[in-house]
Amino acid sequence: LNLKQAKEEAIKELVDAGIAEKYIKLIANAKTVEGVWTLKDEILTFTV
């Protein structure tokens, strides 16, 4: 999975969960695949 694909998957998951745009922007700015997954997990843990 490359960075672009990771971001697309994570953003789709966050949108489906009804997460606010400000958190989705954090994913869009992530620099690594690991960073994308870590941010996604943290956002889902603390906002859902």
Rank of each mutant, 00 (worst) to 15 (best):
residue 1 L to S: 10
residue 1 L to G: 09
residue 1 L to Y: 09
residue 1 L to N: 12
residue 1 L to A: 09
residue 1 L to I: 12
residue 1 L to F: 10
residue 1 L to M: 13
residue 2 N to E: 13
residue 2 N to H: 11
residue 2 N to W: 08
residue 2 N to C: 09
residue 2 N to R: 12
residue 3 L to H: 01
residue 3 L to Y: 02
residue 3 L to P: 01
residue 3 L to F: 03
residue 3 L to W: 01
residue 3 L to V: 05
residue 3 L to D: 01
residue 4 K to Q: 14
residue 4 K to I: 09
residue 4 K to S: 10
residue 4 K to L: 12
residue 4 K to G: 07
residue 4 K to T: 09
residue 4 K to Y: 08
residue 4 K to R: 12
residue 4 K to C: 10
residue 5 Q to W: 08
residue 5 Q to E: 09
residue 5 Q to K: 14
residue 5 Q to N: 08
residue 5 Q to V: 07
residue 5 Q to H: 09
residue 5 Q to I: 09
residue 5 Q to F: 07
residue 6 A to E: 03
residue 6 A to H: 04
residue 6 A to V: 07
residue 6 A to Q: 04
residue 6 A to D: 01
residue 6 A to S: 05
residue 6 A to K: 03
residue 6 A to G: 01
residue 6 A to R: 02
residue 7 K to W: 04
residue 7 K to S: 02
residue 7 K to Y: 05
residue 7 K to T: 03
residue 7 K to I: 13
residue 7 K to P: 00
residue 7 K to Q: 10
residue 7 K to L: 06
residue 8 E to Q: 11
residue 8 E to K: 09
residue 8 E to N: 08
residue 8 E to V: 10
residue 8 E to F: 07
residue 8 E to W: 08
residue 8 E to I: 11
residue 9 E to T: 12
residue 9 E to A: 14
residue 9 E to W: 11
residue 9 E to G: 06
residue 9 E to H: 12
residue 10 A to H: 00
residue 10 A to P: 00
residue 10 A to S: 03
residue 10 A to K: 00
residue 10 A to E: 00
residue 10 A to I: 04
residue 11 I to D: 00
residue 11 I to C: 06
residue 11 I to A: 04
residue 11 I to Q: 04
residue 11 I to H: 03
residue 11 I to K: 05
residue 12 K to W: 04
residue 12 K to H: 05
residue 12 K to E: 04
residue 12 K to A: 08
residue 12 K to M: 06
residue 12 K to N: 06
residue 12 K to R: 13
residue 12 K to L: 06
residue 13 E to H: 08
residue 13 E to N: 06
residue 13 E to L: 12
residue 13 E to W: 08
residue 13 E to G: 05
residue 14 L to M: 05
residue 14 L to R: 00
residue 14 L to Q: 00
residue 14 L to F: 03
residue 14 L to W: 01
residue 15 V to L: 14
residue 15 V to S: 09
residue 15 V to F: 07
residue 15 V to K: 13
residue 15 V to N: 08
residue 15 V to E: 10
residue 15 V to I: 15
residue 16 D to Y: 08
residue 16 D to K: 15
residue 16 D to F: 12
residue 16 D to A: 15
residue 16 D to V: 10
residue 17 A to H: 09
residue 17 A to Q: 07
residue 17 A to F: 08
residue 17 A to I: 07
residue 17 A to C: 08
residue 17 A to N: 07
residue 17 A to Y: 09
residue 18 G to I: 03
residue 18 G to W: 03
residue 18 G to K: 06
residue 18 G to H: 05
residue 18 G to D: 04
residue 18 G to S: 04
residue 19 I to H: 03
residue 19 I to Q: 02
residue 19 I to M: 06
residue 19 I to E: 01
residue 19 I to L: 07
residue 20 A to Q: 10
residue 20 A to N: 09
residue 20 A to K: 07
residue 20 A to M: 06
residue 20 A to G: 11
residue 21 E to P: 11
residue 21 E to I: 09
residue 21 E to L: 09
residue 21 E to T: 09
residue 21 E to H: 09
residue 21 E to F: 08
residue 21 E to A: 09
residue 22 K to Q: 10
residue 22 K to S: 08
residue 22 K to F: 10
residue 22 K to Y: 13
residue 22 K to W: 12
residue 22 K to A: 08
residue 22 K to P: 06
residue 23 Y to I: 04
residue 23 Y to G: 02
residue 23 Y to H: 05
residue 23 Y to F: 11
residue 23 Y to T: 02
residue 23 Y to C: 09
residue 24 I to E: 02
residue 24 I to D: 01
residue 24 I to T: 06
residue 24 I to K: 03
residue 24 I to Q: 06
residue 24 I to S: 03
residue 24 I to P: 00
residue 24 I to W: 14
residue 25 K to H: 09
residue 25 K to M: 13
residue 25 K to Q: 12
residue 25 K to C: 12
residue 25 K to P: 03
residue 26 L to P: 02
residue 26 L to S: 04
residue 26 L to Q: 06
residue 26 L to F: 05
residue 26 L to K: 05
residue 26 L to H: 04
residue 26 L to E: 04
residue 27 I to N: 00
residue 27 I to Q: 00
residue 27 I to D: 00
residue 27 I to L: 07
residue 27 I to G: 00
residue 27 I to E: 00
residue 28 A to S: 10
residue 28 A to T: 09
residue 28 A to F: 11
residue 28 A to Y: 15
residue 28 A to M: 15
residue 28 A to D: 11
residue 28 A to E: 15
residue 28 A to P: 02
residue 29 N to Y: 12
residue 29 N to F: 12
residue 29 N to R: 09
residue 29 N to G: 11
residue 29 N to A: 12
residue 30 A to C: 14
residue 30 A to N: 01
residue 30 A to H: 01
residue 30 A to I: 04
residue 30 A to V: 06
residue 31 K to W: 06
residue 31 K to L: 10
residue 31 K to C: 11
residue 31 K to Y: 06
residue 31 K to D: 11
residue 31 K to F: 06
residue 31 K to M: 10
residue 31 K to E: 11
residue 32 T to P: 00
residue 32 T to L: 02
residue 32 T to A: 02
residue 32 T to G: 02
residue 32 T to H: 03
residue 32 T to W: 03
residue 32 T to R: 02
residue 33 V to F: 05
residue 33 V to D: 01
residue 33 V to Q: 03
residue 33 V to C: 05
residue 33 V to L: 07
residue 34 E to Q: 08
residue 34 E to A: 06
residue 34 E to Y: 06
residue 34 E to R: 05
residue 34 E to I: 08
residue 34 E to W: 06
residue 34 E to K: 08
residue 34 E to V: 06
residue 34 E to S: 06
residue 35 G to W: 10
residue 35 G to T: 11
residue 35 G to L: 13
residue 35 G to F: 07
residue 35 G to E: 15
residue 35 G to H: 13
residue 35 G to N: 10
residue 36 V to S: 01
residue 36 V to F: 03
residue 36 V to W: 01
residue 36 V to T: 03
residue 36 V to M: 03
residue 36 V to L: 05
residue 37 W to S: 09
residue 37 W to M: 14
residue 37 W to L: 15
residue 37 W to T: 12
residue 38 T to N: 12
residue 38 T to H: 14
residue 38 T to K: 15
residue 39 L to S: 03
residue 39 L to D: 01
residue 39 L to K: 05
residue 39 L to N: 02
residue 39 L to G: 02
residue 40 K to S: 04
residue 40 K to G: 01
residue 40 K to R: 13
residue 40 K to Q: 05
residue 40 K to W: 07
residue 40 K to V: 15
residue 41 D to Q: 12
residue 41 D to T: 09
residue 41 D to M: 13
residue 41 D to V: 11
residue 41 D to G: 07
residue 41 D to C: 13
residue 42 E to K: 14
residue 42 E to R: 14
residue 42 E to C: 15
residue 42 E to V: 11
residue 42 E to T: 08
residue 42 E to M: 15
residue 43 I to S: 01
residue 43 I to R: 00
residue 43 I to G: 02
residue 43 I to E: 01
residue 43 I to D: 00
residue 43 I to L: 13
residue 44 L to K: 04
residue 44 L to M: 07
residue 44 L to S: 03
residue 44 L to R: 03
residue 44 L to I: 07
residue 44 L to H: 03
residue 45 T to R: 15
residue 45 T to I: 11
residue 45 T to C: 14
residue 45 T to V: 08
residue 46 F to V: 10
residue 46 F to E: 07
residue 46 F to L: 14
residue 46 F to Y: 12
residue 46 F to H: 15
residue 46 F to K: 15
residue 46 F to I: 13
residue 47 T to D: 08
residue 47 T to M: 15
residue 47 T to L: 15
residue 47 T to W: 15
residue 47 T to Y: 15
residue 48 V to C: 14
residue 48 V to Q: 14
residue 48 V to K: 15
residue 48 V to Y: 08
residue 48 V to D: 13
residue 48 V to M: 13
residue 48 V to W: 06
residue 48 V to P: 11
